[in-house]
């Protein structure tokens, strides 16, 4: 059922919902952007739907709600490890289709890979319901359609934001009661059907081709351009890598906690082993690694879909103006060229 809901009414609903849920949405942090006089848009808990930024892409994805930048895993003493605890509030996340699909990719890593479930991810993920936000325009770096991630049916509510009114589709019966007295309307959520940016995906059929892809000259361009900052991986909704480290509370004690912190394959020390030996030693190697993970080997492993959902945030965040869609297109051109050489 769909309803026309005023902002005031929606805020009342929100107030009720907040008794049971933590409600997260992209909101604006003024003057906190990367450049002077720019804002930062990222996920945080909201008190009013007026705060939700629905007509601009958020700089960061909602992944940090379920896979926080830093997360305590254990508290320890010298004699025991105790699993960290969380409260029992449920979670509601306002998100666009690409991000909901992105979180499905995280599910694959955290809940399926290795046939084991990561308890820290699962305990948050199990609480999550989505409020789907309609994309009112196609932002210039989006390529969700090429990645097949412009649609989803995993949502409880779908919302189209207007100046002073919202159109709300209620899909999850749990929420029907909140809107029963509102005016019923004919609203169906519209998924984006065209992007300005189109991406062609590479067809790497075998290991022979993969080896040739490794040796492509195109990667070397990134030695001059990529500065290993990792902004792309922290903005990416599907990047899941982390490093664990221990923190002690006092100098001489053994009381402390084990945490995990986001890690980036673009950083030099990502593969460094004891003795200083590391792999993928140039920005070119690391760019190749990240690109192939997003549009080749994740799919090789899990079969269904590529890891990248085409949200374009890596492109938006790159200080060096490296466009990920251009990188993929270039790779595909090169693979096609190599293919022709074989035939």
């Amino acid at each position: 059922m769909s309803y026309a809901v005023s902002i005031e009414k929606m805020d009342k609903v929100l107030k009720e919902l907040k008794k049971k849920y933590r409600v997260y949405a992209p909101i604006r942090f003024e003057k906190r952007g990367r450049y002077s006089d720019t804002d930062l848009i990222r996920y945080a808990e909201i008190d009013s739907v007026k705060d939700v930024v629905y007509n601009e892409k958020s700089d960061f994805s909602p992944k940090e709600v379920i896979h926080p930048i830093t997360q305590t895993l254990f508290h320890f003493t010298e004699y025991e490890y105790r699993e960290s605890q969380i409260d029992d509030k449920e979670i509601l996340i306002f998100a666009h289709p690409c991000d909901i699909n992105g979180i499905k990719r995280l599910d694959t890593i955290f809940l399926e890979n290795g046939n084991n479930e990561d308890v820290y991810y699962k305990r948050l993920r199990d609480k999550v319901k989505f409020v789907l936000m309609e994309c009112q325009e196609d932002w210039d770096t989006c390529f969700c359609i090429s990645m097949g991630s412009n649609q989803t049916d995993d949502y409880s509510l779908a919302i189209k934001f207007g100046e002073d009114q919202l159109s709300v589709e209620v899909k999850d019966n749990e929420f029907e009661g909140f809107f029963a007295s509102e005016e019923e309307i004919d609203f169906t959520y519209k998924f984006v059907t065209a992007n300005q940016e189109e991406v062609n995906l590479p067809k790497i059929d075998d290991k022979e081709m993969l080896k040739k892809v490794y040796d492509l000259k195109m990667w070397e361009d990134y030695n001059a351009r990529c500065k290993d900052c990792g902004a792309c991986t922290s903005a990416c909704v599907t990047c899941s890598c982390f490093t664990t480290s221990d923190v002690i509370y006092s100098e001489n004690g053994r009381v402390g906690e084990r945490r995990r912190v986001w890690a980036s394959c673009q950083h030099e020390d990502f593969t460094e082993m004891a003795g200083g030996h590391s792999f993928r030693n140039t920005p070119a190697d690391r760019m190749r690694f990240r690109t192939l993970h997003k549009v080749y080997d994740y799919k090789e492993r899990f079969g269904e879909e590529h890891m990248c959902v085409g949200c374009g945030r890596c492109t938006d965040r790159c200080n060096q103006l490296i466009s990920f869609s251009k990188t993929i297109n270039k790779l595909t051109e090169e693979v096609n060229r190599l293919q022709k050489e074989v035939n």
Partner: peptide, 11 residues
């Protein structure tokens, strides 16, 4: 290099 040993950390 390994951090998790259970297929999650990516290292």
């Amino acid at each position: 290099k390994m951090s998790c040993a259970i297929g999650k950390c990516g290292h």
